[in-house]
Amino acid sequence: MNFIWAFLILISFVFGALNGKLDDVVNSILSGAESSITIAINICGVMVFWLGIMKIAEKSGIAEKISKVLRPFAKVLFKDASNNENAISNIAMNFSANALGLSNAATPMGIKAMEELQKINKDKSSASDSMCMLLAMNTAGFQLIPATVIAVLASVGFNNPTQIIVPTLLVTSFAFVTAIITAKIMQKFFPPQSETEVQ
């Protein structure tokens, strides 16, 4: 991430200068910083609401019930977290919300799941296998209906935009399965986390 971030910024200055767009690049720093706060504020409201609802789910014991049903699946994908009901129920809801295209709702669920996974993480500064699996599921972005894309197609007068649903579903499933298998294989090849002191 250090490399990619620095690379993006350096390459932007180089190409900006070559293309004579250096002023655009400088302006984009200001507008980008501004829009990041706008996005954070948008997330904040949903985040506050969702964590409130999840606290209720946790206290009433419904989170535990949901996770019990899902435990067989969780054991395969999230070995070290399969006993943590808050993690498993949030992972399940995060996946469902993503699949339904409710990405604003999915982010707080995913972050809540990350917090639960961090509680049982051996090394608090590095990603556990379960975290990597959750990220693999999220970065692959499995979605049943690409609603935004259909909206764009409809706006340019595309004939029958729903014809892209099935091909997109095939591709998104393929990418999703690839992500999970890759994460599973990588678990074996990457050096395991080292134990650190529990703070």
């Binding site: 390459i11 200055f13 900006g16 655009d24 984009s28």
Partner: peptide, 16 residues
């Protein structure tokens, strides 16, 4: 959030 969004905005604006 700010780190990633600014970097991507710069990258887009540069015409790279």
């Amino acid at each position: 959030l700010t780190a990633i969004i600014v970097a991507v905005a710069m990258f887009r604006a540069s015409g790279a």
